[in-house]
Design a protein around this nucleic acid. Structure first.
Length: 280
DNA sequence: CCGACAACCTGTGAGC
DNA sequence: TGCTCACAGGTTGTCG
């Protein structure tokens, strides 16, 4: 599902429409997500104003004010493998709910947000404002698009890790937001074989990887993310990055750079794609 | 601590 | 047409 670019694209489109508006009603049609949607969430959210829409890793965060409750807090959403949000701006006609539309957020100016997730690996929980980072977010590594994501620190994070670099790149304690599509894509751009033991990469290659991860994610955000099966942008349209992929999903097809057939292998149960000529 | 794998769940496409 | 199997963008827990 959605990796960092898809969540970022979703956050941006929500941000412009719901920031500063109050949640008038929250409805839950199926609580069975990765963690159950809390039974009291409707009351918890009612009347609160969304102060800020943020993204951390693949989590979408709606910071809310107290709105008549004791204190503020943050609504934490995750789209899992198959989740997406659909935003209906004020005044547009509402189509009927689809199968797997599990949650609805109605805002005071008439905007409606629907959470859709066939596989129900997603998440919707409330974190009261405290001094502590919510547990779900506490163990997360650096944001790849922040300045803190640097060759030196990544090299340090990979120290002693014998697992393939592709798996290490997908470990949220190393760097957040890089999932199965963009791990293969970033390694192609960096010219690094996905099976290379992570600790064997020198600073020069790690620096290339840092740049490649950034470039891959930024390009994907600009393209509106990747739509393979379930993901859609908040207006229901598809992202386009899947058409720009160098290697993901292209087994047997010619490398866009050198023409050699793209290879596929399986690492830790996940499909990996690479070019054996461009990546060493 | 590290790494590999199963599990969570539904849908889809391939092959028979 | 229909059955079975493999596989799909993530995360977490368990086992070696």
């Amino acid at each position: 599902m959605p990796e960092l670019p898809e969540v970022e694209v979703t956050a941006r489109s929500l941000r412009s429409v719901i920031t500063g508006h109050c949640i008038e009603a929250f409805r839950c049609f199926d609580r069975r997500l990765r963690q159950p949607v809390p039974a009291g969430l409707s009351k918890t959210l009612a009347g609160r104003r969304v102060v800020e829409v943020r993204r951390r890793a693949k989590y979408l965060l709606l910071d809310c004010d107290a709105g008549g409750h004791k204190s503020g807090g943050t609504l934490i959403l995750h789209l899992g493998m198959s989740g997406s949000l659909r935003l209906f701006p004020p005044g547009v006609a509402l189509p009927p709910r689809r199968k797997h539309d599990h949650l609805e957020f109605l805002f005071d100016h008439g905007a409606l947000v629907r959470y859709h997730d066939p596989r129900r690996f997603g998440l919707c929980v409330w974190a009261p404002a405290t001094d502590e980072t919510p547990p779900l977010l506490a163990e997360l590594g650096p944001e790849p698009l922040d300045d803190a994501f640097q060759a030196e620190s990544l090299r340090q994070a990979l120290h002693g890790r014998t697992a393939p670099i592709k798996n290490a790149l997908m470990d949220a304690r190393v760097v957040v937001g890089v999932g199965n599509i963009y791990a293969s894509e970033a390694l192609f751009r960096a010219g690094i074989r996905p099976a290379t033991p992570a600790c064997r990469l020198g600073l020069v290659r790690v620096a290339r990887l840092v740049d490649a991860v950034r470039a891959t994610l930024e390009d994907a955000i600009a393209a509106g993310g990747s739509s393979l099966r379930d993901y859609a942008k908040t207006d229901g349209s598809d992202g386009w990055f899947q058409n720009d992929c160098f290697v993901y999903g292209r087994a047997g097809e010619p490398c866009r750079r050198c023409g050699a057939p793209i290879q596929q292998l399986r690492q830790a149960g996940r499909a990996t794609f690479y070019c054996k000529r461009c990546q060493r």
